[in-house]
Design a protein around this nucleic acid. Structure first.
Length: 875
RNA sequence: GGGGAUUUAGCUCAGCUGGCUAGAGCGUACGAUUCACAUUCGUAAGGUCAUAGGUUCAAGCCCUAUAAUCCCCACCA
């Protein structure tokens, strides 16, 4: 016996995945670069869509483990992949691994510190090599976990974000941008983490509202407000609003900066808000973002008074070397002593923090490489407004455009060794020649190079990871100008809604810049997976769910089905183990369905000793068979539509209902009487293939265990529609109604245990007569006979069938109240329908078919009521 | 300050272009049972669709306002 009585995922999953992988079924069937380059131009977009399907994996951190969000990502992407593969497209799901620059660096630096070392003991190249080894040791974990989730990705094409072709492509783009004047070196204020010693892009900064103090300090004739008194040594002006009458006479004069001998000018700037504090604000261009801009407008000097390690510099000796907090105390003390600290009050303001360590970020004046984003963003906006990319959920398109419209220049320099080196070299001796100060060169393995006799020194910074990952669709598909691939643009980009700005926006800008085309045709964004109470998962709350635990406990398919349930694009939604359990149950149900069918097939073959067990031709022989063909066709149609619209939860829901209720509950129950073996085989195949995208392992395990199937289900074709007789199929609905109504009436009868007790009587009803055995089995009534004579027993509440439960008079009498209630309730429905028909506007304006439906419903209710009333009058 | 959402059964969510008596799963209650599956089968209860107006023959869905909850961006001397 190949089918055990329940499905045990652990016995099958690893072997099945290994078998798929070694059979090469994950790789695209058509070449990734068109062989025929001088084609006749017939390879248009339409044909591309019909033939090729490409999707890339947002690369998980090579150094980490998968979390629940990755689980969702894989469930979504792999369902799309498998569905499109079954649909016959050459499907390429490209896996990746992320060097995760800053994340990994933080982990590594911590390990280094634990060993009693610091980063300053090594140069960049040494550190890079050490982290490389560190990551290489961990990398296998993540890939094993992707396999456990069933990701049917083309492993030989796995792209690591530090692969040579990635670096090459990034350098090519950077060179192009440099030549196009889109890259500039600027001294700007950047958010700097004193702990990690690196700058961040705006998007990496976490703002938190915190209590703070606003101090008022006397600056000569006026009083300024500040939350950071220690920066006063860097002040180079005091600003007031040009419309502020209070300070009109002071404009253009100077004041003496407290605790120093320096005179600073009083200037006017819109930045000063007359309503805030005293209306006068000290300007520290080197340590505040707003002040920096004021400084630019007024050409003010930038005096750096805080060093990169968070200590005071360029200040009077007394304060030199203090930390910012120590310095603040001292400054306040000294101001107070001089009597020029005029006030202090508590406020709430937002403070920038390092998203990794929580340290308060210091705005720091630094020379960094910037991307001038204006043109890139403008082009992206044009293509977005053109509707070239379809978003799920749709509103994210607007959100993204809005973001791009306000985008500021992008700082791409990071002061960490773990990343792609920036390919720029600085002239060793700036005075030496007329050569430019900075040159582009790919030889970043060298610390210094020589070009036309001039020595250049390597910039020690690395790229922001988003700069390289913005090339992801390009590098994964191996696109190049000489060899454009039919897999670019991608059919879809699936990723988390939280990185819409950081990643999706940048991929679009970069894709357009490098290839001239948008990098993908559709974007599907998933939301956060919250815990069962709708709270965000976090280590500190202890509510983190590890997807691998669930896979081990319930199986990969159960996890995938469970996480897709009740989920829609872009929404943060709760997740609980219950949905995984019900996924596990579905797998087991399907397993047992297959077990039953296999046993019928075995029996049939030994009895009839047919020429061959394989038979693709089938004929429907009764209403139930026609009906299941119709329902399966509808199910296929529904899934196709849902997958086109990225409605995964609905597709899964449809499959649950079709498999559990329709296929097992009605069709298989009816097959216990009729047994159409070719049809059983055909319909089971259909069900298995339809579920395969969502539950790949159990469907393959069954496929391998069935006696008549061959090959892998993963490589099958999506089922074509089944043939059936629609009239016969519709008749089965009548049978279902009869069965349901009989069951319901039996339950409602007084007393318990009413099944198997009373027979059923029918009058002049060929549908019932032809299906006596079936109705008997499904309702569990002991016998079904013709009425033969005057009606007796209890009438079943159906308009079109004359059916009685053969119960004694006493039971009928006891049922009287229930019957009366039934008549009343049908009466209420009838009244509502009649009211609708009495409204002339309805009859006149509503579509004809609706009016007709209402009329038919009225007739049916009327007939039902009169029959029930007749019954009541007999009691 | 700007933007984006959410609000439907005890819980988690569907409900598409307005159109049958607003659905599903879980949970709850009651019942069943050798013979594919207790990871099972059957039946039922449970909803003022956040609130108030409006449009329409018809509103959970469209419009206006309000409330609550959440997220993002910017600013906060």
């Amino acid at each position: 016996m190949k089918f055990a009585s329940s499905y045990e995922p652990n016995q099958y999953e690893a072997d099945i995945y290994a078998a798929w992988e070694s059979a090469g079924v994950f790789e695209p069937s058509a070449p990734t670069i068109p062989v025929d380059n001088n084609a006749d131009g017939e390879d248009d977009r339409f044909e591309k869509d019909a033939k090729y399907y490409s999707i890339v994996m947002p690369p998980p951190n090579a150094n980490g483990n998968l979390h629940i969000g990755h689980g969702l990502t894989i469930a979504l992407e792999d369902s799309l992949t498998r569905f499109n593969r079954l649909k016959g497209k050459s499907t390429w799901y490209i896996p990746g691994a992320d060097h995760a620059g800053f994340e990994t660096w933080v982990v590594y630096e911590r390990a280094l510190e634990a060993q009693g070392h610091t980063r300053f003991e090594f140069d960049r190249d040494e550190l890079y090599a050490r982290v490389w080894d560190f990551v290489a040791m961990q990398r296998g974990n993540m890939e094993l976990q992707l396999r456990a989730l069933g990701a049917s990705c083309s492993w030989k094409d796995l792209t690591f974000t530090l692969d040579e072709n990635v670096i090459d492509r990034v350098y090519t783009t950077f060179e192009k941008m440099w030549n196009d004047g889109l890259i500039y070196r600027g001294e700007k204020l950047v958010n700097f983490c004193p702990k990690h010693q690196t700058a961040f892009a705006d998007i990496e900064v976490e703002h938190k509202d915190e209590p703070g103090t606003l101090w008022e300090i006397q600056y000569g004739p006026l009083v300024v407000s500040t939350t950071r008194p220690e920066t006063l040594f860097g002040d180079t002006a005091v600003a007031v609003n040009p419309d502020d009458a209070r300070y009109k006479d002071l404009i253009g004069k100077t004041v003496k900066l407290p605790l120093t001998d320096r005179e600073i000018p009083i200037i006017t700037d819109e930045h000063a808000d007359p309503a805030y504090g005293t209306g006068a604000v000290k300007i520290t261009p080197a340590h505040d973002f707003d002040d920096f801009e004021v400084g630019e407008r007024h050409n003010l000097e930038r005096i750096q008074v805080i060093s990169e390690d968070g200590r005071m510099i360029n200040v009077p000796e007394k304060y030199e070397g203090l930390t910012t907090t120590e310095c603040r105390k001292q400054v306040l003390k000294d101001l107070k002593a001089q009597g020029i600290l005029k006030g202090e009050k508590s406020i709430t303001h937002s403070v920038a923090h390092c998203y990794k360590c929580g340290t308060v970020l210091e705005p720091m004046l630094k020379e960094q490489w910037f991307v001038d984003v204006e043109k890139l963003a403008k082009t992206a906006i044009e293509h977005l407004e053109n509707g070239e990319i379809k978003f799920h959920p749709v509103n994210k398109q607007k959100v993204l455009i809005n973001y791009l419209k306000n985008l500021k220049d992008w700082n791409i320099s990071r002061q960490i060794p773990w990343g792609i080196a920036i390919p720029m070299f600085r002239k060793a001796d700036p005075e030496a020649t007329d050569e430019p100060n900075w040159i582009f060169d790919r030889r970043t393995n060298l610390k210094e190079i020589e070009k036309s006799g001039v020595k250049y020194i390597r910039d020690e910074d690395t790229f922001d990871t988003w700069f390289s990952s913005s090339h992801w669709p390009i590098v994964c598909t191996d696109w190049s100008e000489e060899n454009p691939t039919p897999y670019y643009p991608l059919n879809v980009m699936e990723t988390g809604a939280d990185i819409l700005f950081a990643w999706v926006a940048r991929m679009i800008m970069m894709g357009l810049y490098v290839t001239g085309e948008v990098p993908f045709k559709e974007v599907y964004l998933h939301g956060l997976v919250l815990d069962e109470h709708g709270k965000k998962m976090s280590k500190s709350k202890g509510n983190v769910i590890n997807p691998m635990d669930l896979v081990a406990k319930y199986g990969s398919d159960a996890f995938r089905l469970g996480i897709l349930r009740g989920r829609s694009a872009g929404m943060n939604q709760a997740f609980s183990e219950n949905s995984v359990i019900s996924g596990r149950n579905l797998c087991n149900k399907l397993w047992n369905i297959s077990r039953l069918i296999q046993s019928i097939v075995d029996e049939d073959e030994s009895e009839a000793s047919r020429e061959s067990g394989v038979s693709l031709s089938y004929t429907t022989l009764n209403q139930g068979e026609d009906w299941i063909c119709r329902e399966l066709n509808d199910c296929l149609e529904q899934i196709e539509q849902d997958m086109r619209e990225y409605r995964f939860a609905e597709a899964v829901e449809t499959l649950y209902q079709t498999i559990w209720d329709k296929y097992a509950g009605w069709f298989l129950e009816s097959q216990k009487i009729y047994r159409n073996v070719p049809l059983l085989k055909k319909t089971l195949e259909t069900v298995l293939i339809a579920l395969h995208p969502f539950a790949p392992f159990v469907t393959e395990a069954i496929w391998q265990n069935l006696s008549w199937t061959t090959g892998f289900i993963i490589a099958e074709k999506w089922p074509s529609r089944l043939k059936f007789d629609p009239i016969s199929a519709e008749q089965f609905e009548n049978i279902r109604n009869i069965v349901s109504e009989v069951r319901g009436t039996l339950q409602a009868l007084p007393g318990t245990n009413n099944t198997n007790k009373y027979g059923l009587l029918y009058d002049n009803d060929s549908l019932v007569e032809d299906n006596i055995l079936l109705i008997k089995t499904l309702t569990k009534v002991p016998e079904i006979n013709p009425l033969n004579g005057a009606p007796r027993g209890l009438r079943i509440a159906l308009a079109n069938h004359e059916l009685y439960l053969d119960v004694p008079e006493k039971v009928v009498t006891e049922y009287k109240d229930a019957l009366t209630e039934k008549i009343l309730s049908v009466g209420r429905e009838l009244n509502a329908l009649n009211a609708r028909m009495l409204n002339p506007n309805y009859v006149e304006k509503a579509p004809e078919h609706l009016v007709k439906e209402t009329q038919d419903a009225i007739k049916e209710k009327e007939s039902l009521i009169s029959r029930l009333k007749a019954q009541l009058s007999l009691i």
